[in-house]
Design a protein around this nucleic acid. Structure first.
Lengths: 184, 184
DNA sequence: AGTAGCATGTAAAAAGTTACATGATTAT
DNA sequence: ATAATCATGTAACTTTTTACATGCTACT
């Protein structure tokens, strides 16, 4: 029926199903803080997709519980059929990821320029991820504690662990690369 | 002047500068086998970009050295101004990468479905990267030896090391995740 | 009064993939 | 003969980003 648009819909459905009712803005913010190490989404995708999902009755606008005064914020909730669509998608194999690291392209072609340029790219790269690694370590501790009581949180914990492993790999590579580049 | 189109041009310029004259097909093939762990490019981007670069005189069509009989294959070489454009780009800071792992989205929302589904996603993920890790290890050995004599190859080696670290992180995560999911 | 953050949305542009068409060459 | 791979290219489509417009609320 609906021609399997992008994955934005599953992000929305998934967040609504696991976090409860949210606005478009909430979805953006949550994605930025909690999913940033494996996903990203812009407003330009979220808002139109919310409209579409609502038209398909996979989500619905929930009545604003606050006094009629307040305006603007629109809270969406996932419907039963939305949950079904989410579960169906969950069962399908994931697409293979194709990542593009511009910084690696610059490193790979580094011989065309100065070695100092390559060095500074790597330093910048490390500087970008260092604070994220620390953040994730703290986040891991929090969620680990929660997961001990609520087994559903194991999934979130697994995602965090993925982020940690990958970001640690980034830093470890940067350190090794800096050492190899210094040897000259 | 030219409004900083995508990064496809720098891939082309970079490969031409480091590998010598190549055809569009060569560029695609090289990217697939040697840069696949940090870059990808489709024919739909390469061929039009080659035309554009040639029109801008950043690359040029080289005379076919083979007998006039053979047709089709078009070899491009980078020009002096192409090299300059490449070096300029090399000096600019790299954009921040935003990676999207559909498999992680499925893991993160895993609590909505069955745990066995999450498990199979992780198994598939591991199966995808296991052979690549081995390939990269072999590739590392080869390039390491070459890099000892030719210091320019250090850059290629660094890129391979990046791939190894990241793919190792994938496998290490998959192993840990499988263990944690089995505990129930 | 002004700024930052909350909040929704759209239009245009850019980037990227996919599917197709075409034909030569090489290996089985 | 036929299948695989080499080789170039285009059109349509999908996806994604960016830039803008609008207005409210909370804080300084």
């Amino acid at each position: 029926m609906s021609p399997a648009r992008g994955k934005t819909r599953y992000l929305i459905l998934g967040l609504l199903a696991t976090e409860g009712p949210l606005s478009g803005y909430d979805i953006k913010r949550l994605t930025e803080v909690r999913l940033r190490y494996f996903w990203s989404e812009s407003f330009g995708q979220i808002y139109p997709e919310l409209k579409l999902l609502a038209a398909e009755k996979l989500i619905e606008v929930l009545p604003d519980s606050s006094r009629p005064a307040k305006r603007a914020k629109i809270r969406y909730g996932v419907t039963e059929s939305g949950r079904r669509v989410l579960r169906d998608w969950l069962r399908e194999p994931a697409e293979t990821e194709t990542n593009r690291y511009e910084v690696l392209l610059k490193v790979y072609f580094g011989a065309v320029g100065d070695r100092s340029v390559t060095r500074s790219h790597i330093e910048l790269f490390r500087a970008r991820y260092e604070p994220l690694v620390e953040q994730l370590a703290a986040f891991d501790q929090q969620v680990s504690r929660i997961a001990e009581e609520d087994p559903d949180h194991l999934h979130v914990l697994l995602a965090i662990r993925f982020g940690r492993k990958v970001y640690d790999a980034y830093l470890s590579w940067a350190a090794e690369a800096e050492a190899l580049l210094a040897e000259e």
